[in-house]
Simulated scan of single mutants.
Amino acid sequence: MKAMPGRIRIIGGDLRNSRLNVPDLPGLRPTSERVRETLFNWLAPTIAGVRALDLCAGTGALGIEALSRGAAAVQFVEPERAPVQALRDNLARLKAAGGEVAAMDASHFLQGTPQPFGLVFLDPPFALQLWAPLAQRLEQGGWLAEAAQIYVESPQGVSFALPSNWMLHREGHAGEVRYALYRRSQSVPLS
């Protein structure tokens, strides 16, 4: 089920049924309700109190859903002016404490001082194919907590390299989209 253009519904937690205003921009591709519901069912045992990073935030639906379900804090990273303003407005209107927005691209953000996150949403614009470089920066730059979970959304059939210590925990498909949850292991598997 696709959300109405311009509005997305939060599906669980304290902000359940709240609507997010979303700018109508080409390439802005909110994660569907069905995929978010599945993902947050997977995350339910570990979401409370986690510090999350919504890298390439876009609408911010993933990060706001995490705040709604008990995440302690979410850092949103988004370079485009209209989504940044909509995200800030939505956080203020919903009184979603713990959300902070960085108006910059993900690569620039990851050049800053690292803060380890327990949960990362990695859902870059599909056309830019940033999965591998952003994943490497997250892993090598000190951005991930010891047992971090990383959600990756990508087109089906597109392959890219992820760090070898990211272990696939769960995955699914919805239409042309593949979504997967990885768990970071401290030890790097032998090749």
Results as ranks from 00 to 15, higher is better:
Trp131His: 14
Ala147Tyr: 05
Pro30Phe: 06
Ala66Trp: 08
Asp123Lys: 01
Ala86Val: 06
Ala103Met: 02
Ala92Thr: 11
Val74Gly: 02
Thr113Met: 07
Val188Cys: 11
Thr113Gln: 13
Arg19Thr: 11
Leu181Glu: 00
Val152Cys: 11
Gln85His: 14
Leu122Ser: 03
Gly27Val: 04
Gly175Ala: 08
Arg19Cys: 06
Ala103Tyr: 02
Trp166Met: 04
Arg9Glu: 12
Ala145Gly: 08
Ala48Cys: 07
Trp166Gln: 04
Gly99Leu: 04
Gly6Phe: 13
Ile47Tyr: 02
Met4Phe: 12
Arg34Gly: 09
Gly157Lys: 10
Phe40Ala: 13
Leu25Ile: 11
Asn41His: 12
Leu20Cys: 08
Ala127Lys: 03
Met104Leu: 13
Leu128Val: 00
Leu122Gly: 03
Ser187Ile: 11
Glu153Asn: 05
Glu176Asp: 09
Arg178Thr: 04
Ala148Gly: 06
Glu33Ile: 04
Ala106Ser: 09
Asp105Tyr: 01
Thr31Gly: 03
Ser185Ala: 14
Thr59Ala: 08
Arg7Lys: 15
Ala97Arg: 15
Arg184Thr: 05
Ala174Gly: 01
Leu91Val: 14
Ala3Phe: 11
Lys95His: 12
Glu146Ala: 15
Ser18Met: 04
Gln85Tyr: 07
Val74His: 01
Ala72Lys: 15
Gly142Asp: 00
Phe40Ile: 08
Ala61Trp: 02
Gly49Thr: 10
Asn17Pro: 01
Lys2Thr: 15
Leu94Val: 12
Val152Asp: 00
Val84Leu: 07
Arg51Glu: 08
Leu87Cys: 11
Arg36His: 07
Leu119Arg: 06
Ala66Phe: 11
Leu119Lys: 05
Leu128Asp: 09
Asp24Ile: 09
Pro163Ile: 00
Arg69Pro: 11
Leu87Tyr: 09
Glu146Asp: 14
Arg88Val: 05
Arg7Pro: 00
Gln129Thr: 04
Ala82Arg: 15
Val188His: 15
Ala103Gly: 01
Tyr182Ile: 08
Ser68Arg: 12
Trp143Cys: 04
Gln149Thr: 08
Val120Asn: 05
Ala97Ser: 12
Ile8Glu: 15
Thr31Val: 10
Asn17Ile: 03
Gly13Glu: 12
Gln140Trp: 05
Ala135Leu: 05
Arg93Cys: 08
Ala106Cys: 07
Arg7Ser: 13
Ile47Ser: 09
Glu176Leu: 10
Leu87Val: 09
Ala61Thr: 05
Tyr151Thr: 10
Glu171Gly: 01
Leu181Cys: 12
Ala147Asn: 12
Phe76Pro: 06
Asn41Thr: 13
Gly142Glu: 02
Leu110Cys: 09
Thr59Gly: 06
Leu144Thr: 02
Val158Phe: 07
Arg93Ile: 06
Val84Ser: 08
Phe40Leu: 13
Gln111Ser: 14
Thr113Asp: 07
Ala71Asp: 10
Leu119Ser: 06
Gly27Leu: 09
Phe76Glu: 00
Ile11Val: 15
